[in-house]
Amino acid sequence: MAQASQPSMNRPIKPSGKLPYWVEPAFTIVAFGGFIIYSLWEVLFHNTGTYHNYVSPFFSPGVAGWFGFHVLTALYVVWVPFIFRFSCYYYRKEYYRAFSFHPFGCAVAEPKSHRNRSYKGEWKINNLHRYTWFLAVIVLIFLWKDVVEAFIFPNGFGVGIGSLILLINAILLTGYTFSCHAFRNMIGGRKDCFSCTAHGQSQKTTSYKLWHRISEANVFHGTWAWASLFSVWIADLYVRLLIMGVIHDVRLF
């Protein structure tokens, strides 16, 4: 293409009324970077995430314990959410924009260095997102078990700040997991026709209703993704600080 004959490549003024294009990727870099550094610290330097009836999402389920390992115990679990999120369609947008500048922003010229390297499309390994979804669901089941346990104190049922944090975390993770694009495909997206099995009936089929619900949630997949990332972070930090004795859990009743 006659790229050279095109108008100059300099970036004109930002579109009015909106944030500059670099704000979103910059936020992604800071948030992701922060979370990864925090995760490394958590995974590499801690071997337990349990404080009484609270379990940090980084350490649940306790796979390491099942096999009798006692070092880097979080590592046996965190890879699951990590690969689930890494192959997530929403996160792909964020990291391709923020970290590999493919592209950094819409209609923003990619860096000059890209011109010498050929672009081959996305990583094919991401197509396995559907399998990571199943793994994520297994982990999610344990997290809900943890939530139940977080409400059971030595003296019976109770509610602490920690129980609420774990509950909210589990809700957000559930929202994130079940608004997944791959799940949406599995649940009915691959069908072309929902009503074809029930000709002439205006009654919506169950599979359609399910797919429709998931589709509605899917619109906010990005919101679920960020919210649940921060909730995991907060939940783990809360438990960590309790273990370290920096703060004390507040029992509400």
């Binding site: 369609y89 792909r92 947008k93 391709y96 493919h102 592209p103 209609a107 672009y119 499309g121 996305e122």
Partner: peptide, 9 residues
């Protein structure tokens, strides 16, 4: 379709 890396522009 694999060329698309879902950056949504």
């Amino acid at each position: 379709i694999g060329m698309c890396n879902v950056t949504k522009c």
